[in-house]
C-alpha cells in the first residue's frame, strides 16, 4: 500500500516514525493471532474428512508440500532468533533499536507457524510416519526435504546468516538477507502457498487454508522488512561508501546460487510424485519467475539475467530427473530411523 504510516505517540529511545517501528507495531496488531484459538474456531473435522477421502498418492503430495514448510519454518525461526537478531544491531545499519524490536516479532511469528504445522500434521495427517519429530536444527531434516535440494537452501541460509552475524559486514548481511527474506520467504514460501490456493475442490482443507492466509500475511511484513533492509544497503553502496561496495553483486550471486535448489521444492511436491492433484510444476516455476522479477528487478532495481536463471534451473531439472527419487527418499528415511535410535539413547 502507499502508506502514510505515522504513530500518534513519540518516545525518546524509540523512533516511532521509523519504518521498522511501523512493522513492529503492525506485527503486534496483526501477527499475534492465536494458533490454538484458530484450532478451536475452525476445528479439524473438515480437514480430517478431506484427508480421509484422498488417495494415498494425493495425501503424499500434500504431505511433501507441508513437510517442506515444517522444516523451513523451524529453520527460519531458529536463524531469526540467533543470527538475524544479532545482525539487526550491526553498526553499518541505521535504526538498530527499531530493527531489533521488529526482529522479535518476526521470530515470534515464525515459531507460531512451526507450532501450527507441527500440531496440524499430528492431528490431521498422522495416518503414516510424518518424520516430524526430530529437529532439523540438530541436523536431521524430513527425508523428502533432504533427498531433494530444498535442504541445500536451508543449509545455505544457516551458513550465510551465521557468517553475517559473526562479521556484521554489509555484503555478508546483504547475502544473508537475500537468501532469507527474498529467496526463502519471498519465493519458496509464496510459491508453496500458491500451490495450496490451487488445491482442487476435493482437497477442501479450511483450517490449512485459513492458517496459511495468516502465515501469508505475516510473511508479507517479513518480505517488506527484507526489501527495506536491502534498499538501505544498496543506497549506501550507490552513495559510494567503500564498506558497502559489493552489496548488489552479493544479492545477485545469492539468487543464482539458490535458485536451482529453490526449483527443487516445486519438483518435490509435483513431478516427483506424478502430480495427482494437478499442482503443475510449470505453474510453480512461472510464479517463482514472476516473483523474482517483481522483487529483484522492479523493486530493488537490479538486473537479473533471465537466461542465466533459466539455464541453472533447467540444468538442475535435467540432473534430478535422472534420479531414482523414491530410492533417495527411502535412503533418507533409513537415515532418519537411525537418528531416531540415537536420539532415543540420549544423543542428538
Amino acid at each position: 500500500m502507499s502508506q502514510v504510516l505515522q504513530s500518534q505517540y513519540s518516545g525518546q529511545r524509540v523512533d516511532t516514525g521509523s519504518k521498522w517501528y511501523t512493522l513492529f507495531q503492525k506485527g503486534v496488531e496483526l501477527g499475534t493471532w492465536n494458533v490454538e484459538k484458530l484450532f478451536d474456531e475452525i476445528g479439524f473435522e473438515q480437514d480430517r474428512a478431506s484427508w480421509e477421502a484422498l488417495s494415498q498418492d494425493e495425501r503424499d503430495q500434500i504431505r511433501y508440500l507441508i513437510s517442506g514448510f515444517l522444516d523451513g519454518e523451524r529453520e527460519v525461526a531458529g536463524d531469526a532468533a540467533t543470527n538475524l537478531q544479532r545482525i539487526m544491531g550491526a553498526p553499518c545499519l541505521d535504526e538498530n533499536t527499531e530493527k531489533e524490536m521488529y526482529m522479535t516479532m518476526l521470530t515470534l511469528t515464525e515459531h507460531k507457524h512451526t507450532q501450527f504445522l507441527d500440531v496440524y500434521m499430528q492431528e490431521v495427517m498422522d495416518d503414516q510416519d510424518n518424520y516430524n519429530d526430530l529437529d532439523p536444527r540438530r541436523g536431521t531434516r524430513i527425508p523428502v526435504v533432504q533427498a531433494t535440494g530444498l535442504g541445500e537452501v536451508f543449509e545455505h541460509q544457516g551458513l550465510l546468516t551465521a557468517k553475517a552475524a559473526n562479521t556484521l559486514n554489509p555484503v555478508d548481511i546483504a547475502k544473508a538477507a537475500t537468501n532469507y527474506h527474498l529467496n526463502v520467504e519471498g519465493i519458496l514460501a509464496r510459491v508453496g502457498a500458491s500451490a495450496i490456493s490451487r488445491f482442487p475442490e476435493r482437497a477442501d482443507f479450511p483450517l490449512l487454508n485459513y492458517a496459511f492466509k495468516f502465515v501469508s500475511t505475516d510473511e508479507g511484513r517479513h518480505i517488506t522488512h527484507g526489501i527495506e533492509l536491502l534498499k538501505e544497503l544498496i543506497e549506501k553502496e550507490e552513495a559510494g561508501n567503500p564498506q558497502f561496495q559489493g552489496v548488489k553483486q552479493g544479492i545477485v550471486e545469492t539468487l543464482y546460487q539458490d535458485v536451482p535448489y529453490m526449483a527443487d521444492f516445486g519438483y518435490m511436491f509435483t513431478d516427483a510424485l506424478d502430480d495427482p492433484l494437478g499442482l503443475d510444476f510449470n505453474e510453480v516455476l512461472m510464479r517463482g519467475g514472476n516473483l523474482i522479477d517483481g522483487m529483484y528487478n522492479e523493486t530493488l532495481g537490479l538486473d537479473i539475467d533471465y537466461m542465466e536463471v533459466l539455464n541453472v534451473v533447467r540444468d538442475r531439472y535435467l540432473e534430478i530427473n535422472e534420479w531414482d527419487i523414491k530410492q533417495r527418499v527411502h535412503e533418507q528415511e533409513q537415515h532418519y530411523q537411525r537418528k531416531r535410535g540415537v536420539a532415543a539413547d540420549g544423543g542428538v
Binding site: N209, S216, G220, G294
Partner: peptide, 28 residues
C-alpha cells in the same frame, strides 16, 4: 495493510500477500 504491507510510494511492483491479494487468490 493486510493486502499489502510495502512502503512503496507509487503502487507496488509485487504483491506481498500471496494468498490474500496475490494472483493465487484467483485459483482459490
Amino acid at each position: 495493510y493486510i493486502m499489502d504491507s510495502t512502503f512503496e510510494e507509487e503502487g507496488v511492483s509485487t504483491s506481498f500477500n500471496e494468498m490474500v491479494s496475490g494472483t493465487s487468490l484467483e485459483d482459490d
